[in-house]
Write a protein that binds this DNA or RNA. Structure first.
Lengths: 198, 198
DNA sequence: CCCTCTTGTAATCATTCGATTACTCCATTT
DNA sequence: AAATGGAGTAATCGAATGATTACAAGAGGG
């Protein structure tokens, strides 16, 4: 039949699909997402997604790689800003970089869904390796102390979880939910989280 | 055909199924788990699981309730120990209670998988409500300060994520993985995590 | 002894989903 | 103008899965 989608170079189309997949996998997880939903989000047909990536598993792996690369790139950019080399200052800059990533819900949620798949024989190792890349970055490139690493990762995971649970939506009606977000991160971060949940 | 499974009162059988479901959902998540795997883990047939719980969704909701109840009960028991009422001391006792829960991988992982389902119209609200119950407990019953709540939840989520990712397995072979666990939680907690991942 | 209720299964159904196949359309080349 | 190859889809297939149905087997009561 007449192709509805514009004809676009395969390389560019792959990138569109990966962007769509980041959103869909972030929202529904690996098992919950379907190749058809990714295809619709990318504006093309389901078989084409499969043809360009081989399998759903491979699509997820490439999506995971892409989100991890974005995370690391964002951190490295924050570290590269010309600023005093103080460790506390670097911590603040990385924190700000993380908060900017929250704006693109899909990136952080896809990463988190990857971490949750530890028992998968293929995705599990890939996700663990990604986690370790982040760890090494904080240790070797950011020069964080163990305690700084601990705090940074813990705060990140809490943000991820609150984001994934969609508690920002509840915060508009539920007083306790709003309290929780203010309480755990202060008004500024809470506002970012709430905005991203909408 | 001759029933292989022993005849057991329905109420008791439900509890067995919920225990099995906690393990299976914790490992595979809601979408990734099948009613058949839960049934096999409980030693009965798949249709019987469906009959006793109606739908897979309902089974997950009840499993979630059960895990949340266990978490809260464990915390309340820790708070009830006769000991000086100091807030820092309560924090330590709740932390120890949490670490004990890690031993039963399924409980914490099922909760975490529930939190990840924020976009589900039925499970999402239930999971958010569960999160808020924990929050209110820390605030009202444990008397935690906002900063204490923040730290406690953040550490919990990091533990959950490391547990889910199965990084304890990698720690045996990968030096960085072992470093990560030691680094973020100190040798004691790292050992618990490693044991629970096996 | 029969009746009935509870516990449980085998068989099967309908749907969903990932994947495959065979095709169309269009641009470029020769 | 015919040939080639890349971009894309419709149709369909097979496996998996949640759910339904119909049935079996034992326990207890009258």
């Amino acid at each position: 039949m007449t192709p509805r989608a514009e004809r676009i170079p395969a390389e560019e189309r792959r990138e569109q699909i990966l962007a769509a997949a980041t959103t869909v996998f972030g929202e529904l997880g690996y098992a919950g997402a379907t190749t058809d939903r990714v295809a619709r989000a990318a504006g093309i047909s389901q078989p084409y997604v499969v043809r360009l990536f081989g399998t759903k598993e491979q699509l997820f792996l490439e999506t995971l790689d892409r989100t991890l690369a974005r995370l690391l790139a964002s951190f490295r950019a924050a570290l590269a800003e010309d600023a005093p080399g103080d460790a506390t200052d670097r911590e603040a800059r990385l924190g700000a970089a993380y908060l900017e990533l929250v704006e693109d819900r899909g990136t952080l949620l896809t990463l988190l869904h990857g971490f949750m798949m530890g028992s998968d024989p293929v995705i599990g190792p890939a996700a663990r390796d990604g986690f370790l890349q982040v760890f090494r970055m904080l240790r070797d490139e950011a020069g964080f102390t163990p305690e700084q690493i601990h705090r940074f990762l813990a705060d990140g995971m809490l943000i991820n979880t609150l984001l994934a649970s969609g508690i920002g939506l509840a915060a508009k009606r539920d007083r306790d939910a709003a309290d929780l977000m203010d309480c755990t991160f202060g008004a500024h971060v809470a506002e970012v989280l709430e905005r991203a949940s909408a």
